[in-house]
Design a protein around this nucleic acid. Structure first.
Lengths: 118, 118
DNA sequence: TCCATACTGAACCATATAGTTCAGTGTCTA
DNA sequence: TAGACACTGAACTATATGGTTCAGTATGGA
């Protein structure tokens, strides 16, 4: 795969594409948590939960710290800034398209429509 | 996988997690394009490009219409609103954590620090 | 009518993801 | 010091992803 964009956006959007991981972020927003407590909450094995946490950690969205036998997870310092910026920048493109679509619709009303065919 | 969140967020964040697909959205923001022109631009086979476009289409980020032998791709009506909202809502959680971190750092300066160990 | 163009679909490959089990290792705590 | 607890890592499974090639089908133009 040829790289065009930011590999960190790759990692964070991929991390956010799983509902369990979005739930973990939600949960950590309410307070730090151990792997065990997260695994309980999301009904998953410790090993499975650890993998999710690692994905979030690689994306910089979560940091963990092991004290004694307990690994505590908390929200990281990435703060979703770059992601918010990408999305906001591109929402403008989408909105510009809407205006263009309005024109097309008026045109279609005049001359009869094509199909989204095949 | 037990589902907790929105399956449409799953699809759109997954779609955005690939730099080529983010590039396609970028490109379509500058104007509609055929599969062939996108494949050229991103140096990829037609088949490969078609798959990317299908991922974007399933996520609602792109719509396509075939006229004659040409399939034209344009930005869809999803507009990234839900994605922007999720991210904005959660940025607040991250920022709240920062303040908490500041407290922790001051505490650590007083009593000597732990390690992010193991 | 014939050829080039534009796409489509099936099949394949390598790698990643989402999860599991099982067998550890290290740390409390009674 | 024995057991319980919290995690870790390897190995395995099933499925998805990102890409390819190859063999079509359908359309448009000379």
């Amino acid at each position: 795969m040829v790289q065009y964009g930011s590999p960190s956006l790759d990692l964070s959007f991929a991390a956010l594409s799983d509902a369990t991981r979005r739930g973990i972020i939600d949960q950590l927003g309410r307070g730090d948590a151990s792997i065990t407590s997260l695994a309980d909450k999301f009904q998953m094995t410790l090993t499975g939960m650890k993998k999710h946490v690692q994905v979030l950690e690689r994306a910089g969205l979560v940091v963990t710290q092991k004290v004694g036998r307990v690994r505590t997870c908390k929200l990281g310092k990435r703060s979703l800034k770059a992601e918010a910026e990408w999305i906001e920048a591109h929402r403008k493109l989408f909105e510009a398209r809407f205006e263009a679509l309005d024109e097309i619709i008026s045109e279609m009303k005049q001359e009869g429509s094509d199909e989204t065919a095949n």
